[in-house]
């Protein structure tokens, strides 16, 4: 009795030739798709392995605390320069971006909102070299290369990131909360600060971290504004070193020792960038922004 129904169902649901063909095609195509995904993921491993293999060797405490003119060579000034310029850029971008996002989301009419959204979209797509060129043309011929210009160039790139992420989290705050606050007799501006923004706070902070991770990895804008320097002293009014510039300059040099140091600096920079990025991923901010 156990076999009869089975034979019956095999008969009833037997596969035709065309069924079999379709299933073959299906298997083949799925394998192709899997292969493509593998290709997409492959570079990560290759790059990671190279960075570790080539960079780990020269990495030691001295590398992180010495300066380019010391013996042995270090990138302390570059680390400080990167942090200084990105930090100042964040101090500029954060208030402007958050304020702008609040205005567009809470006060602006629909048509103004649409214009604002378009502008932010365009600014997000501006190539980093153009931002650098802009600040370069404005300041460098007169003031020379300096760290402030570098920070400005970074903030041109970071502000739209802050603005877009803040807008998106503000949009997620349910209208009912604003209404509840208004119904209590709280004016709109206080509602916006103490209810809407307070609810969206973690999202806003994540946006700042996202902007930071963008700023710290940029080379092109700094190339045209802050250049680089070997000075141990951090002077924002003069050419300023940064990790990205160190990697860039060392990479194009023909000195193999410098080239090796480029890998080590790359390792340090990548570690920082990865940490920031992981912090953001755990909050799942829309990757379209980057």
């Amino acid at each position: 009795m156990a076999t009869a129904p089975r034979a019956q169902s095999e008969l009833r649901f037997a596969l035709s030739e065309s069924d079999r063909r379709r299933m073959r095609v299906n298997r083949r195509m799925l394998r192709v798709i899997q292969l493509a995904t593998f290709v997409a993921v492959l570079p990560v491993f290759l790059i990671l392995i190279s960075i570790l293999a080539k960079g780990l060797g020269t990495l030691d405490f001295a590398f992180l605390t010495n300066n380019p003119l010391d013996e042995p060579v270090g990138i302390a000034n570059a680390i400080k320069g990167s942090l200084a310029m990105t930090g100042i850029a964040l101090l500029i971008s954060a208030p402007i971006g958050i304020a702008g996002a609040i205005y567009l989301n809470e006060y602006a009419s629909t048509s103004v909102q649409r214009i604002g959204d378009t502008v932010v979209d365009i600014l997000l797509g501006v190539p980093s070299i153009v931002a650098g060129l802009f600040i370069y043309l404005l300041f460098v011929p007169i003031l020379g290369f300096n760290g402030y210009a570098g920070a400005l160039a970074l903030s041109v790139l970071m502000t739209p990131v802050v603005m877009r992420t803040t807008q998106e989290v503000l949009r997620l705050v349910p209208a009912g909360l604003r209404e509840a606050s208004l119904a209590l007799g709280v004016p709109l501006w206080r509602t916006t600060i103490f209810v809407t923004c307070r609810t969206a706070l973690s999202g806003i902070l994540t946006g700042l971290v996202l902007a930071l991770s963008r700023g710290i990895g940029e080379t092109a804008p700094l190339l045209l504004t802050a250049q680089g320097s070997n000075d141990a002293v951090i002077d924002l009014g003069a050419p300023l070193s940064s990790m990205t510039m160190v990697i860039y300059n060392n990479t194009i040099s023909s000195d193999p020792v410098k080239f090796a140091q480029a890998w080590t600096c790359a390792l340090v920079l990548f570690a920082i960038a990865l940490t920031l990025n992981v912090l953001v991923r755990f909050r799942t901010i829309n990757s379209r922004v980057l």
């Binding site: 909360l177 606050s181 609810t199």
Partner: peptide, 18 residues
Amino acid sequence: RVRRSVGMVFQKPNPFPA
């Protein structure tokens, strides 16, 4: 000022999450 004298409770409870 009006809304401080005339309060409102909404259909869906909306305590401030933060």
